[in-house]
Design a binder for these strands. Structure first.
Lengths: 116, 116
DNA sequence: TCTTGTGGTTTCCTAAAGGATACCAGTATC
DNA sequence: GATACTGGTATCCTTTAGGAAACCACAAGA
């Protein structure tokens, strides 16, 4: 049945979206995939994010085992965020999003030229 | 530089998220990828969606060239929605999300067993 | 002593996303 | 005559996401 097949595809997708949806989680993970970072570094490198959102999203990501938070007792303390091994299993999604975004931008730009 | 590299990865991802984010667009596209469908069929096959959201999301998807709407002058009229060729370029994202969602569910279930 | 940097928290607010319900015309079916 | 089907729209409402700005302790450097 078409409808049942549909469910077996949609339900896991909903599970994934529940965890990574929103404006910031994928961008944060993307930055951390390139290199682990400290809080203020992330704040600078993820354009437009506020400290409040960054803090909240990092907590969510840590709860779901995608990001690991490590505190170093320097003065002042430094806190390092890194993608966990499990977090790296999201790489195919991140790559697919980036790849599509790049192609989409090319498409939009070429359409603009035709219209003008 | 780490920060500039970061931008070249994050900006296209943001472009992609702008178009497909939200609770319903990917589930709708997933259903249509399996087979084209009429409005009421979609309403039944995408669990939990309201007619209002379905109508709105389909319009968004049509505007972005991901879905094609075709009206047949039957009695009563029937309207068919199908994924466009361009819409199918989202397949890698959809597959990656589904794949991860399935693995994630397995992981969660196995963790529950250990905890109990 | 003033600023800068560390990693955040707190409060207040707005905008957007999404849900519930009722409703529309027209036809076929019971 | 009532019901169910077609593909939606309109209205009202709640919830959530997200943003702005102020603030915290502590230490180093100018």
């Amino acid at each position: 049945m078409k409808s049942e097949l549909c469910l077996t595809h949609i339900l896991p997708i909903r599970d994934a979206l529940d965890i990574i949806s929103g404006k910031w989680k994928i961008p944060i993970l993307t930055a951390l995939c390139i290199h682990k970072r400290r809080f203020k570094e992330l704040h600078r490198d993820v354009p437009g994010i506020t400290a409040k959102m960054l803090s909240k999203e990092l907590k969510d990501l840590e709860i779901n085992g995608l990001v690991k938070r490590t505190v170093y007792e320097t003065m002042p303390v430094s806190v390092e965020y890194a993608v966990t091994e499990y977090g790296h299993t999201l790489n195919p999604i991140i790559f697919a999003l980036r790849d599509w975004g790049l192609k989409h931008r090319v498409k939009i730009l070429s359409e603009d030229k035709v219209e003008v």
